[in-house]
Computed example of a mutant assay.
Amino acid sequence: MIDRIGHPFRNPELLQQALRHRSAGAPHNERLEFLGDAMLNLVVAEALYARWPKADEGALTRARAALVRESALAELARRLELGPRLELGPGEMKSGGERRDSILADALEAVIAAIYLDAGFEACRATVLPWFDVELERLPAGKVEKDPKTRLQEWLQGRQLPRPEYILLETRGDDHARIFLVSCRTSEPSLEEQAEGSSLRAAEQAAAERILARLEAR
């Protein structure tokens, strides 16, 4: 698979492992995912540092978070057509695992690690950075919006109101495909919204976004 990814693997077994979900058995892609997450953060951080010479740490951190968040990586994995190539166990295949954001994002990170192990950092950076060209160009230099939880807290603090409360209501699914249901509550004004996510943080952010939308609509 060279066309979409853009890297000719000298060791195809690395790519095969990167696309094998743990539900399909060992060797699967979880260790590669761990390494790929670190490589991706380095590549993106380096690119932002070079592009935005006057941006402060906060702006750089928010920009990196926007680029490497799960939903963004999953969309990129779809553009690279990784979903149909994933090796999944029967249960994940039946539940549509090849379309799930968490599985796609993890596979993308694993592929990044596979490229790094196959050819080194320079080749990894040269392959991965072009994947983010469109997203990098769309980012307003030094002015990336803060995440919903931060914005909600600042909205409340700016009006001297209590901080929001986040409550984990439910966790379901297998260990490798957890879904979290979270409630976000504010006491003044009294509002509550619930949201799901493939991580606790993602669910909290989604719930905070819904509270913000209600506050800003008032």
Results as ranks from 00 to 15, higher is better:
Ser23Ala: 13
Ala26Leu: 08
His28Pro: 09
Glu33Asn: 09
Gly36Leu: 03
Ala38Cys: 13
Val44Cys: 07
Ala45His: 15
Glu46Asp: 15
Leu48Trp: 01
Leu48Tyr: 05
Lys54Tyr: 09
Ala55Val: 08
Ala59Ile: 10
Arg62Pro: 01
Ala66Gln: 13
Ala66Tyr: 15
Arg69Leu: 12
Glu70Met: 11
Ser71His: 05
Ala72Cys: 03
Ala72Ser: 03
Glu75Leu: 02
Arg78Ile: 14
Leu80Thr: 12
Leu80Met: 07
Glu81Ser: 10
Leu86Cys: 05
Glu87Ala: 14
Glu87Leu: 14
Gly91Glu: 13
Glu92Ile: 04
Ser95Pro: 09
Gly96Glu: 03
Glu98Phe: 06
Arg100Tyr: 15
Arg100Ile: 09
Asp101Ala: 10
Ser102Leu: 10
Ser102Trp: 08
Ile103Tyr: 06
Ile103Glu: 07
Leu104Arg: 01
Asp106Gly: 06
Ala110Leu: 00
Val111Gln: 05
Ala113His: 00
Ala114Leu: 13
Tyr116Asp: 10
Asp118Gln: 14
Arg125Leu: 04
Val128Lys: 03
Trp131Thr: 04
Phe132Trp: 07
Leu136Gly: 02
Arg138Phe: 15
Pro140Gln: 06
Ala141His: 11
Lys143His: 15
Lys143Ser: 10
Lys143Tyr: 13
Val144Ala: 11
Lys146Gly: 12
Lys146Ser: 11
Pro148Gly: 00
Arg151Val: 04
Leu152Arg: 01
Leu156Phe: 04
Gln157Gly: 13
Arg159Glu: 04
Pro162Glu: 11
Pro162His: 12
Arg163His: 08
Glu165Thr: 10
Tyr166Arg: 03
Leu168Gln: 11
